[in-house]
Computed example of a mutant assay.
Amino acid sequence: MPAPTKLLAVIPARYASQRFPGKPLALVGGIPMVVRVHRATAQSGVFGKTVVATDDQRIAEVVTAAGGEVEITRADHATGTDRVAEVAARYPDYDVVANVQGDQPFVHRGLLEALVAPYLRGERPEMTTIGCPLPADGADDPNVVTVITGVDGRALYFSRSAIPYPRNPGPAPAYHHLGLYAFRSDFLAQYAQLTPTPLEASEGLEQLRVLEHGYTIGVSLVDASVPEVNTPEELEAANRLAADWDK
């Protein structure tokens, strides 16, 4: 009988965001956002361990004070995934590593279970992510990333534009992409060494690097998205939502 899959969740958090400096420590419903993400992930029961990865002592102190685990990383990482890869290398006993974005204060068990479900079924994609139904006004919004999938449920492409082009009427496997990722631990180490790619640079979507290098991304589908916080305006909306979410 094979050994159970060991799952590690890493929450990358940096203070120096261009659009929203100090975002991980912004209060959502009176709780620092990174603490909300850590609590939801750790309490989901999906992962054997949950840690926050940061290079900032202010973030580390807040997470530690709230009872969370922290790993201090280098400050020169270009992406959150690179930060996750540094931490994952310190935990070689884990088979699968999830990158749970620190700006998703309403992440919940259902999303996290869907993210890692392919691995728990015994499948071995290099990487997995999440899709859900596209919002009615999402096609023209470059902040709404679309993923299209093949008949095997694996990603064919991600774009900030409307894809596929609706030349003919009818349904198409196009979904709103949610920024949660999980990796086979051996592939995550490889990912950190992959060179950036043209489509990745054009779209500003780092997951395209995986596809351009010929690797696979499994897409699990869920019924609905959860709000992210990328700007101070979105923080205001998150605080309004938190009043009901925390009841």
Rank of each mutant, 00 (worst) to 15 (best):
P164D: 04
P135K: 07
A53D: 03
A238P: 11
V219N: 10
V107Q: 01
P32F: 12
L8F: 05
V116Q: 06
G68Q: 09
T50D: 02
D186S: 13
E200I: 00
G218D: 15
K49T: 02
A189H: 15
R109G: 13
Y94A: 15
D152Q: 15
P92H: 10
P169C: 03
R240I: 04
V52A: 00
P105C: 10
D137P: 02
T195V: 07
V46S: 01
P32H: 05
T197P: 01
V144C: 07
P92V: 13
G122A: 14
L194D: 09
Y91G: 08
V28S: 05
A162I: 03
T64M: 05
A16N: 15
G218H: 14
H77Y: 15
E234W: 00
V34E: 04
V34L: 13
I59C: 02
G22K: 04
H213T: 09
E228D: 15
V46L: 00
N143K: 10
P171F: 09
V229W: 00
G45V: 12
P196Q: 02
E233P: 01
A238N: 09
N239L: 11
G80M: 04
I72A: 08
V51A: 11
Y15W: 14
E212F: 06
Y119W: 15
A78S: 08
W245Q: 06
A42N: 08
R14E: 10
V210D: 11
P32W: 07
I130P: 04
F187D: 09
R167S: 10
D56V: 02
M127V: 09
L235A: 09
P4V: 12
A162Q: 13
E236G: 11
T79L: 14
R19F: 00
Q207L: 11
G179L: 06
G122Q: 13
G179R: 03
Q207V: 12
V52Y: 01
S44H: 06
A16M: 01
R160A: 09
P142Q: 08
K49Q: 09
F187C: 07
F106C: 05
P125V: 13
Y91P: 04
V51D: 05
E234P: 03
V151K: 08
L115G: 09
T231N: 02
S159H: 06
R58F: 04
S225K: 07
A155R: 07
L221H: 11
L235H: 10
R36M: 02
T5I: 15
G204C: 03
S161D: 14
E123Q: 15
L7Y: 13
R58T: 06
R121C: 08
L188Y: 07
